[in-house]
Computed example of a mutant assay.
Amino acid sequence: MASSSMPFPDDLQRVLSRAARIGRRSEDITPSEPVADTDNGTLHRYGDPSNPPLLIVYSLVNRPAILDLSPERSVVARLIAGGFCVYLLAWHPPGAARRYLGLADYILGDIADAVDWVTDRHERCPHLLGICQGGVLALCHAALAPDRIRSLVTLATPIDTASNDDRLAQLARSIDFDALVAATGNVTGQGLATVFASLKPFALGPQRYGDLAALARADDAALEAFMRMERWMYDGPDLAGRAFAEFAREIYQNNALMHDTLVLDGQSVRLAAIDTPVFNAWAEHDHLVPPAAAQPLSACIDSDCECHGVPGGHLGLFIGGRAHKQLYPTLINWLRSH
């Protein structure tokens, strides 16, 4: 009897051939224009510049393509449709000469400069939206300069890394990061992608490539979205060695946000100093930022904090159907009210 799995190689071959014909198309789904440069990034503008400004601070670890993956699942496009002029601070890969960039360079330098630029152009403070590691960077900026932003949004942002189900934190506790970067310099994006994949090997391995074979009968748009996701997952930029070591040590080993022990260029970061409205959301089955890591933010700040847990995993918070149908309309209404 022939095995039901026999068509898989043929399906895989067909979808790979189609993928080669499609090629590597532009990463831009939503039109944008570069409007300013910071020391370590470029500020891109999306949408109508007459609308209220919203500045996105993304993680240093991946590229921000996940926020604009397809016309149907674009966080950027949804925010534009919600009536905002969206800015994205896209980080430059550091290069070997910038291995000594630290968290203070990004937070006190680039983010502060981007916020000031947007404020000057719009004559009003922007809403600040931080994502994943970028949420930590945005929190630090909000704590040190709360009067420079209109509101703060954090998505999948680790606050308390002491929980037993935080697998990334558990992995980090046994590593000497200073010794690691002293030996390697910058940390490669490919190496980090391998680490992240190891935390959920089946879903990011055999199951995912079974899904690839299933695309043999899908249209080109679905296949292109899959390819864009693959590039996002495995084509991440390198990280400046010092900033990587500082983040891993302070956030994951010392749990510095919870203990008020993070110091940037002599300035203490205390979450209680945040006095702007906050919107905090997480994914209920996130293997990178579990709910226990994200939820405590409301208890750390004195301002109003609206909290939302969304069913699904880490990526579902950005490209999941439920997030786009429920979370982002809620977020947009919240932003409009502030």
Rank of each mutant, 00 (worst) to 15 (best):
Met1Val: 13
Ala2Trp: 06
Ser5Glu: 14
Ser5Asp: 13
Pro7Ala: 13
Pro7Met: 08
Pro9Val: 09
Pro9Phe: 13
Asp11Thr: 08
Asp11Leu: 15
Arg14Gln: 12
Arg18Ala: 04
Arg21Met: 08
Arg24Ile: 11
Arg25Ala: 10
Asp28Asn: 07
Ile29Thr: 08
Pro31Thr: 10
Pro31Lys: 05
Val35Tyr: 05
Asn40Tyr: 12
Thr42His: 05
Leu43Tyr: 06
Arg45Ser: 00
Gly47Gln: 01
Gly47Arg: 00
Gly47Trp: 03
Asp48Glu: 09
Ser50Met: 07
Asn51Asp: 10
Pro53Gln: 10
Val57Pro: 02
Ser59Asn: 10
Ser59Phe: 04
Arg63Ser: 10
Leu67Tyr: 15
Leu69Phe: 05
Leu69His: 05
Ser70Pro: 02
Pro71Gly: 06
Ile80Ser: 01
Gly83Asp: 05
Cys85Asn: 12
Ala90Lys: 15
His92Arg: 15
Pro94Ser: 13
Arg99Met: 12
Leu101Val: 11
Leu101Cys: 11
Asp105Thr: 02
Tyr106Gln: 01
Gly109Tyr: 06
Gly109Ile: 02
Asp113Thr: 12
Asp116Arg: 12
Arg124Gln: 15
Arg124Asn: 08
Pro126Ile: 03
Pro126Asp: 03
Leu129Ser: 03
Leu129Val: 06
Gly134Lys: 00
Gly135Arg: 01
His141Lys: 09
Ala143Gln: 05
Arg150Gln: 13
Thr154Ser: 05
Thr154Met: 02
Ala162Trp: 01
Asp166Trp: 00
Asp166Phe: 06
Leu171Pro: 01
Arg173His: 13
Ser174Trp: 12
Phe177Gln: 00
Asp178Ser: 12
Ala182Gly: 15
Ala182Met: 12
Thr184Trp: 11
Thr184Tyr: 12
Val187Asp: 00
Thr188Ala: 14
Thr194Gly: 11
Ala197Ser: 14
Tyr209Trp: 14
Leu212Tyr: 11
Ala214Phe: 06
Ala216Phe: 02
Ala218Pro: 08
Ala218Leu: 07
Ala221Phe: 07
Glu224Trp: 06
Ala225Met: 14
Met227Phe: 04
Arg228Met: 05
Met229Cys: 10
Glu230Asp: 15
Phe244Val: 09
Phe247Leu: 14
Ala248Cys: 12
Glu250Val: 04
Tyr252Ser: 04
Asn254Cys: 12
Met258Ser: 09
Asp260Glu: 15
Val263Glu: 14
Leu264Ala: 06
Asp265Arg: 14
Asp265Ser: 15
Ser268Gly: 14
Ala272Glu: 15
Ala273Val: 11
Ala273Asp: 15
Val278Met: 04
Val278Ser: 01
Phe279Asn: 03
Ala281Arg: 04
Asp286Arg: 02
Pro290Thr: 02
Pro290Cys: 03
Ser298Arg: 15
Cys300Tyr: 00
Ile301Cys: 05
Asp304Val: 14
Cys305Ile: 10
Cys305Glu: 03
His308Ser: 10
His314Val: 00
Leu315Pro: 03
Gly316Thr: 09
Ile319Asp: 03
Ile319Asn: 01
Gly320Ser: 08
Gly321Asn: 09
Ala323Arg: 04
Thr330Gln: 13
Leu331Asn: 00
Trp334Phe: 10
Leu335Ser: 02
Arg336Asp: 11
His338Ala: 09
